[in-house]
Design a protein around this nucleic acid. Sequence first.
DNA 1: AAGATGACTAGGT
DNA 2: GACCTAGCCATCT
Length: 118
Amino acid sequence: MTETKTGTTFTQRAADVIKAIPAGRVATYGQVAVMAGNPQGARQVVRLLHTASNSLGLPWHRVVNRDGQISLPRGGGHEEQRARLESEGVAFTIEDRIDMRVHRWHAADTDLSPHHGA
DNA sequence: AAGATGACTAGGT
DNA sequence: GACCTAGCCATCT
C-alpha cells in the first residue's frame, strides 16, 4: 500500500468514508476517492465496493457515478440499488437518474441544516 | 513480466 | 447532450 505512516490505506479510508454517508444521501466514486485522500482513486473505490461491500457491510448503494446514475448493469444490481435508495427517500428522474444537486452528500452537511442553494 | 479489466472521470468533438 | 479518448491504478490472466 502506498500508506504507511498512518497505518491506514486508501482502501480503508474509502471504506470509512462510505460508511459515513447518511441514508438519503449519495456520493460519487470520485468524491469518495477525494475524501479518502486520492483524487485518482475512483477505480479503487469501485474495486472496494465490487469486492468487499457486502463483507464490510458498506452502504454500497449510496455510491453512484458522477452523472448521478447507477453504474451497475441492469440485472446486475442496478434494480436493487435503485430500490434501496428510493426506500431511503432518494428520488429518481424519468431518465433513471438522481438529482445530485439535491442528494449529493457533503461531509460537513451532515451537521448543518439543509441550506441548499441560495 | 506484459497486457487486459473495471460499479470511474475530465476534457474534447 | 451524446460519443470518443486519454488518464488513472489495484487486481487478474
